[in-house]
Amino acid sequence: MIEIVGLGKKFSVENPKKLSEQERKDPRLKGRFFHSVVDVSFACQPGQVLGLLGPNGAGKTTTLRMLSTALKPDTGSVHINGTDVLQNPIVARKKIGFLSGSTGLYGRLTGRENIEYFAKLHGISQAQFVARIDELADLLDMHTFLDRRSENFSTGMKQKIAIARAVVHQPEVVILDEPTTGLDIMATQTVLSFIRGLKKQGIPVIFSTHHLDEVSELCDCVTVIDQGVSKFNGSLSDFSQLADGSLHQAFLASIK
């Protein structure tokens, strides 16, 4: 289980005069600080998939980076199966599998070598890695390109390798920032099937997306963030009932 309570994060603005008119009108701008995340709370239980929704610039990515310990919150708390993420970030990182929206690969390394490098960082033995990489290659359909250099990979190939790298250590919680963006239909279905597999294993999955069909297909619960505040937390059923079953209208209703 992962539980987030009252997360907040602000960033200093070096020169407010250079901000766009839209940025200057954002109520989160207070003096020389922009409060990207103001007050976000939600929880994801074992075996649940939580869809994190919100307009561009709502604070979703900042929230996910705080969950992954890449950013330290100014306020709030994050607990994973009883571990305080903020107080024990090194321990927490062993429990978390995180795919950033901007995750890159080492182009001169093969797909296998990219994954193996991260496996070694997590202290995984060579024997364990050999078994794990075969399992991941099957699940993510990577056998045909796993031993090619990453620099010439398609977007889908890169994303599959990045996902495998994020979960090679068998984390207790998986956090995915827009994992299907830019993927073709076949690659998207492979990623969605992989998420279903994590769910069957009882692993909580949090993923942000702009594709409401993915939410309908995968999610048990939904959190909507707008202007740095969680505006809706609840089951997919309750979310859809905000607008008589239409997820698009429910989303718009939740951010009014």
Rank of each mutant, 00 (worst) to 15 (best):
I2A: 00
V5I: 15
K9N: 10
V13T: 07
Q22G: 01
E23T: 02
K25I: 00
D26L: 03
P27I: 02
K30D: 08
K30W: 02
V38E: 15
S41F: 14
A43Y: 06
A43V: 09
A43N: 12
L53M: 06
P55L: 12
P55C: 01
N56S: 14
G59W: 02
T63M: 12
T63Y: 14
L64A: 08
M66K: 09
M66N: 07
A70E: 00
K72S: 12
K72I: 10
K72Y: 05
S77W: 14
H79Q: 13
N81C: 13
T83G: 08
P89S: 06
A92P: 12
R93D: 08
F98H: 10
L99P: 04
S100M: 06
G101M: 05
T103W: 14
G104Y: 15
Y106N: 08
R108F: 13
R108A: 14
L109W: 10
L109R: 15
G111H: 09
G111W: 05
G111R: 03
E116W: 05
A119M: 04
L121W: 06
G123L: 13
S125A: 14
A127Q: 15
D134Q: 05
E135D: 07
L136V: 04
L136R: 10
A137W: 09
D138P: 03
D141C: 05
F145V: 06
L146M: 03
R149L: 06
S150L: 07
G156S: 11
Q159F: 14
I163P: 05
A166H: 07
V167M: 09
V167D: 00
Q170D: 07
L176I: 11
D177G: 11
T180S: 15
G182K: 15
M186Q: 03
T188H: 09
Q189I: 01
L198I: 13
K200V: 10
Q201N: 08
P204K: 10
S208L: 05
T209Y: 11
L218T: 06
L218H: 14
C219E: 05
G228M: 07
V229F: 07
G234M: 07
S237V: 11
L242F: 01
G245Q: 08
L252M: 13
S254E: 04
